[in-house]
Write a protein that binds this DNA or RNA. Structure first.
Length: 215
DNA sequence: CTACCGATTGACT
DNA sequence: GTCAATCGGTAGA
């Protein structure tokens, strides 16, 4: 597929998509395409796993104790990226709901669709010192929020980036809407507060999901 | 300035 | 299943 045709097929979701309840946006982000264009080329993947972080009554949300330099993007308008660091790795969120309402959707895993070689290169860069590195299976290229950011070359320089521009980093409308029956719900992964909330959504049966659901 | 913590991952039992 | 590496963000002295 020619590059121009490829890009035309990746038209960005509009701001109104993000300007809704964070749980609604989270569920509807499943099956859409995450697209990244950098100097080295284009990579894209189908979103198969997300988590919602609520503006109200959610201690697991980084914005729970108010605005700081780190989480400022969450307080901005919807449709922008919130990129944060954890354990020396990056994670990508899409900011939702009106400006001033700090909610976001964490993109936890994608199924690689395009630019697999480039993803492989970026992912192996971290582990290239290991002689017997497995090289990484396609399944593991973007299975997990920090792996995904590595494969997509996403770091703090993209914090606050406008995902509706259709440049560098965006989410493209790709689906005809997946059946609610195909969406599985579970507790969020790794959170140590508000662990009981069922705010993780993933495509049932996908091998590209980071781990099975637990209630 | 120091001290603590974690929306993770990869290695290991 | 368990465990520790590792470092930016945050709070507090």
């Amino acid at each position: 597929m020619a590059q121009a045709a490829k890009l035309a097929a990746y038209s960005p979701l509009p701001r109104v998509f993000y300007d809704r309840d964070v749980v609604v946006v989270a569920r509807e982000l499943l099956d859409q395409s995450l697209v990244r264009v950098a100097a080295e080329g284009l990579v894209a993947g189908r979103i198969v796993e997300v988590e919602a972080y609520l503006a109200q009554n959610d201690p697991a949300n980084h914005a729970h104790r108010g605005q700081t330099q780190r989480n400022a993007s969450m307080f901005g308008p919807p449709g922008h990226a919130y990129v944060y660091a954890i354990h020396s790795r990056w994670c990508l969120n899409a900011v939702t709901e009106p400006a001033g309402v700090p909610s976001a959707v964490l993109i936890r895993a994608v199924e690689p669709l395009a630019g697999l070689e480039l993803m492989q290169q970026r992912r192996s860069a971290r582990t290239e010192r290991r002689e017997n590195a497995v090289g990484g299976s396609v399944r593991d290229l973007a299975r997990g929020p920090a792996r995904l950011c590595e494969a997509f070359a996403i770091d703090r320089s993209l914090d606050g980036w406008d995902l509706t521009r259709g440049e560098q980093l965006w989410i493209a409308a790709a689906d005809t809407g997946i059946d609610a029956a195909e969406i599985e719900v579970s507790k969020r992964v790794g959170v140590t507060s508000a662990c009981d909330k069922l705010l993780r959504f993933f495509v049932a049966g996908s091998v590209f999901v980071s781990r099975p659901g637990r209630r």
